[in-house]
Computed example of a mutant assay.
Amino acid sequence: MKKVCLLLADGFEAVEASVFTDVIGWNKSLGDGTTQLVTVGLHDQLQCTFNFTVIPELQVSDMNIDEFDALAIPGGFEEAGFYEDAYSEPFLGVIREFERQGKIIASICVGALPVGKSGILVGREGTTYNLGEGRRQKQLAEFGVKVAPDQPIVVDGNIITSYNPSTAFDVAFKLLEMLTTKENCVHVKRLMGFV
């Protein structure tokens, strides 16, 4: 079984988290059956951008990264406190350890910013939220990332980044493809009505 850690910061966007739970869940139930998703956070209860609350299955302090094959990070809103968790050392430490072990890291929208802040994207290509005069993309560049401003999704080795919430399903499907096979991913897309 390939396990995905869905790493949630307070202030995360529920829709960006839900695509990972659905795509990985559909694969577990109706695809090749080889994937499982576990929600992980820094607190007993997390609140998303628009007040939806989630109780993560594990806290960062209790997780064993060796048991996971991939990391998924949804973005969130600054006004909802996203960066307080996402830029914290425990959160960044998880990202660094997944990279040290060469595991897949998939982020959506501003979920790329903690990936950039962790230092693992220095000199590599990536992207993040592209609207609002490119402010978030400039922040990503300040972390030493070669920003591809017009690419909706950027894959650089084991790291997937994307430029806004509209890319969420595509990122989740790319993660599934990298964990399983292209054929299996197409099969799950077909079951979910995407092809």
Rank of each mutant, 00 (worst) to 15 (best):
M1Y: 10
C5Y: 00
L8R: 04
D10S: 11
E16I: 07
E16R: 01
V19E: 10
D22M: 10
D22I: 06
V23K: 01
I24T: 00
W26E: 04
D32Q: 10
G33S: 04
T35W: 03
G41R: 08
Q45L: 15
T49Y: 00
T53I: 12
I55E: 12
P56E: 12
E57S: 09
Q59N: 12
S61V: 14
M63V: 14
N64T: 13
I65T: 10
E67C: 12
G76W: 02
F77M: 15
A80T: 06
D85C: 11
A86T: 05
Y87G: 06
F91K: 01
L92M: 07
L92I: 11
L92E: 01
I95A: 07
I95C: 02
Q101W: 00
K103M: 07
I108H: 01
C109N: 09
C109Y: 07
C109K: 06
V110H: 01
V110A: 12
V115T: 10
L121Y: 03
R124A: 08
Y129K: 09
L131V: 13
R136I: 14
Q137H: 07
E142I: 04
K146I: 15
D150C: 06
I153Y: 03
V154E: 02
V154W: 02
D156S: 13
D156R: 09
N164F: 08
S166D: 13
T167N: 10
V188M: 09
K189N: 09
